[in-house]
Design a protein around this nucleic acid. Structure first.
Lengths: 364, 364
DNA sequence: CCTAGGATTGAGACCGGACTCACATCGATT
DNA sequence: AATCGATGTGAGTCCGGTCTCAATCCTAGG
């Protein structure tokens, strides 16, 4: 029972020490469970601590241990279930290792990310997990490395930054998926992404996101190998918000030279693309085939269920967190982290293009 | 250019002071932008800070200002898009107010939540946002209030805890939605939730989640008002994981007295329920009507699109964060936060029950 | 030229723990 | 009984900032 209704100052070791009639040093030892303390003293101190409802001030503790037991996580959009799931992997692993997580959302903005990293460093987090908004502007990340603070990357690589990166082989899975579409008969394959660019797209262009670059490389490789003309004009970046994506989708499906298959770069884009297809009165896969990144549960509920590229997102979060913790604690890499491989899951949204389309395009 | 390859110790005000040839106090004043500092000193200090790449240690700062500029957030499952979106509302608002966010996931476990709250308090967060796993076991939350640390609740109320709560009127919207189903002709309406209980369900039973209690109350109220028998046997709690939910769904749809409409308590449950319905070869709404909580984008993509109860989740996060910040900064409530109202969005998943079902049940 | 009062400045206390160091204490050794 | 290593113990420093307080500097008023 705390008899005094409103307490103000927090209870400190000094208070506990006084109550237990021992020195501050002894009280600290008993509470912190270090050094030599007699049973008698320990008991008195713990009893006093209990009585006063003493709670250690972790800030003070961090101050002179130099450890905050906190991981900083910087992601583009926690609203995106992709990151939600990764975050789950991170927090689960962090908790197991005795760490907490400070989350900062950047809205995929470079400036916000630079800021976020600075703030987390100032807060003296023990290490950072970053899903870089840009794989090119990475000065802030290089600085982290130079400062010696542990850093691991999630989802995307960062140029010139020597840090463990946890992501799947995007080039490979993109190649494989494109090949799947080509084998189904598609020649006009579109790709929709929100990644921002300044100039119009051309094959081999350097993009902010290594992830998207790799995917495009995979697409180009598959087309080259098949000896087919690249559908460069169907690569649509800068897709923006839902309305913009729907507009782009309708454009892609219009005209003689229209796309017969569309690849959506993530779950959020997929939603708008599918909505646009449906609202145009077209059906999947009869009128247009569809393929998307990330295997969310809802992709099994549409008619037909959607063919997706599944990434082990939760595991990526887990792996990133445990690698970071390992670095923080200065341990050597033990068992190599499980391979993070993406898989193409074939459901019903990919089919053969209409013969008419193929013919008209061949003739055009 | 930092000429020394590997720096170890962080640069402190003392280092900057020495470099600028002024006292530590003056350097601190110039850097912290307080007190009186001559232009000359300020310039020298700032130049030295720049040169040494000085960064303030926020921990130390927090130590003696007693402010950490950090909000603690405790949610059940960040993987659930509901919380992902709320989190977005929280972090956006926090950032605007100059606060950071520490996130702890409890997996909806009471013990984990108690722990989470303790950890955050120990870390001296300036305030807490909690989505309580239990509306009944709230001792830990009451303690927070007693300690004087600001606290607001999200999504669910907590008994005996005097804290601002940001949630919609679940009873009202549940009543309205049930009435909608009853008017469509349904008499056998099922409700599936993962909330855990020890005893079998009976009307008016006290549940861990105020949210679910309110929804059930709404259902019962609608049935009472219509003078119809309560479908108590169709209230399925403890639904558990995806497999378990699918099993329960199939049970609900079997037999003469089967459910003709199902309400899913959240997006995650909905996925499994719909999947079970589809895999049973039944169609919505011809064989069974369906209604769910939360208006996720994918609910528009199924065939038919799903009738949902939309909650202003992002706004709830925003409101919670700004109320918390207001409390922290000791400001009075200004403009009352916008009302948080849920809406029933009628799409295609609710229709009339099969005449055969109604007759057979009336006859049974 | 002298002085009151505001602007500057540096020394040092302080936040709340962790940890060093010198000084007991005490049973065991020989 | 003198000695030694293993505890116990308290005083006090340190972490890296903020902030108080008294001393010093300047400049305008008299």
């Amino acid at each position: 029972m705390s008899t005094d209704g409103s307490r103000r100052r927090d209870v400190t070791v000094a208070d506990v020490a006084k109550a237990a009639q021992v020195s501050k040093a002894q009280a600290a030892r008993a509470l912190g469970n270090y050094g030599a303390v007699s049973d008698d003293v320990r008991e008195r101190v713990l009893a006093a601590a209990e009585e006063l409802e003493y709670r250690p001030n972790e800030l003070a503790r961090s101050m002179n241990t130099g450890k905050s037991n906190t991981l900083g996580v910087v992601v583009g959009d926690i609203e995106n279930p992709h990151f939600g799931l990764a975050m789950r992997g991170i927090t689960d692993t962090a908790k197991k290792g005795g760490y907490n997580v400070v989350l900062i959302n950047t809205d995929e903005e470079q400036a916000a990310e630079v800021d976020a990293v600075r703030v987390l460093l100032d807060k003296r987090v023990d290490g950072l997990i970053v899903a870089p908004a840009s794989s090119i502007e990475t000065a802030h990340l290089r600085q982290v490395r130079e400062s010696g603070r542990p850093l691991v990357l999630l989802d995307r690589a960062a140029e010139g930054v020597d840090a463990e990166t946890f992501a799947v082989d995007m080039g490979g899975i993109s190649y494989e998926s494109t090949k799947h579409l080509i084998e189904a008969g598609h020649r006009r394959i579109a790709f929709v992404s929100t990644v921002r660019t300044n100039a119009p797209y051309f094959a081999g262009m350097k993009l902010d996101s290594s992830q998207i670059s790799d995917r495009l490389d995979g697409i180009h490789r598959a087309f080259n190998e098949a000896g087919l003309p690249q559908p460069t004009d169907l690569i649509r970046l800068n897709a923006g918000d839902a309305d913009s994506i729907m507009r782009i989708t309708r454009e892609l499906l219009r005209g003689k030279d229209r796309a017969t298959a569309i690849i959506a770069s993530d779950g959020l884009i997929a939603l708008s693309v599918v909505e646009a297809i449906q609202s145009s009165g077209l059906s999947i896969p009869e009128d247009v085939s569809f393929l998307m990144y990330d295997d969310f549960a809802w992709t099994r509920l549409t008619t037909p269920p959607l063919t997706v590229i599944a990434q082990p997102v939760y595991e990526m979060g887990q792996a990133a967190a445990s690698a970071l913790i390992r670095q923080i604690e200065g341990r050597k890499a033990g068992a190599p982290s499980p391979e993070l491989v993406a898989r193409l899951i074939r459901r019903g949204s990919v089919g053969a293009p209409r013969t008419a389309d193929v013919l008209s395009q061949a003739g055009g």
